[in-house]
Design a protein around this nucleic acid. Structure first.
Length: 254
DNA sequence: ATGGCCAATTTTATTGGA
């Protein structure tokens, strides 16, 4: 079973690339982020023709997440359902193939000290609590753009990014709390080495220089770890004309 | 080769992304 997460940076702008991606990899499940469209603009028909159902939480201009699956998703939920703010479309979950699959788009946070920074930290705290509430249900697979590079080996230029919202000690501590809530970084299971990234800035030749960060992740419930036979980043998807600035990240389950 | 930001809207500038 192949599970991918991919921040497409507009599902409308990436429509052709998304269809080619599905054809190339034939994944069973795909978590998408940054759809940048309401549900009425989501390409349901073309995806259905390509063999995929979609559980979608859309939003105009910003955010937007989806879970694509070959099997029809059940028990679709959107947002945290914790009584807090749900105005930003950043979380959708569905049960597929006996797994609880969630697609999450963690807030970027802009800059430490900006008004978006505490929002990011609060959102991560709500996510950790949400993960804890999933215990007792099907094993959780949480794919998403976390906007967190967990460790120094996940950053090509650590000094440049040291105090950024992607690497700040507070955001790395929030990551550790999500891990402690009961999840495992599937990519790290198979790749202890550094130098492997999922995002490269569009500017300054960041991609040809491999000046990237690993900020997109597929986290697994511990019960799924024995089934995780591999993990990889589809770096080729970042090449060519009009790519997303993120590459898809895969976890393979037996 | 993988190449010097991109996408959506508020559109001929501005905002957000990371």
């Amino acid at each position: 079973m192949k599970i991918a997460t991919w921040n497409v940076n507009s599902v409308k702008a990436r429509r052709e690339r998304l269809l080619a991606f599905l054809s190339r990899h034939a994944p069973d499940v795909v978590c998408l982020q940054e759809l940048k469209t309401e549900e009425k603009g989501f390409p349901y028909e073309e995806l259905r023709a390509a063999g995929y159902f979609a559980a979608v939480l859309g939003q105009k201009t910003y955010n937007g997440v989806a879970v694509l699956s070959r099997e029809e998703p059940a028990d679709v939920s959107t947002g945290f359902g914790d009584g807090g703010d749900e105005s930003q479309a950043r979380l959708v979950a569905a049960t597929v193939g006996g797994l609880r699959v969630a697609s999450a788009y963690i807030p970027n946070g802009k800059e430490v000290g900006s008004e978006k920074w505490p929002y990011k930290l609060e959102w991560l705290a709500r996510l950790a609590a949400w993960v804890e509430r999933q215990a007792g249900g099907p094993p959780l697979v949480l794919g998403g753009d976390f906007n967190i590079a967990p460790e120094e080996r996940d950053v090509a230029s650590p000094a440049t990014w040291a105090d950024s919202v992607l690497c700040h000690p507070e955001v790395r501590a929030a990551w550790e709390r999500i891990i402690a809530a009961g999840l495992v970084d599937s990519f790290r299971l198979h790749h202890p080495e550094g130098g492997l990234y999922s995002w490269w800035d569009y500017r300054m030749l960041a991609f040809p220089k491999n000046d990237g960060l690993r900020i997109d992740h597929v986290l697994l419930a511990p019960a799924l770890v024995p089934r995780c036979t591999g993990a990889f980043i589809d770096r080729d998807e970042r090449k060519g004309k009009l790519p997303s600035d993120h590459a898809p990240v895969f976890a393979e389950l037996s």
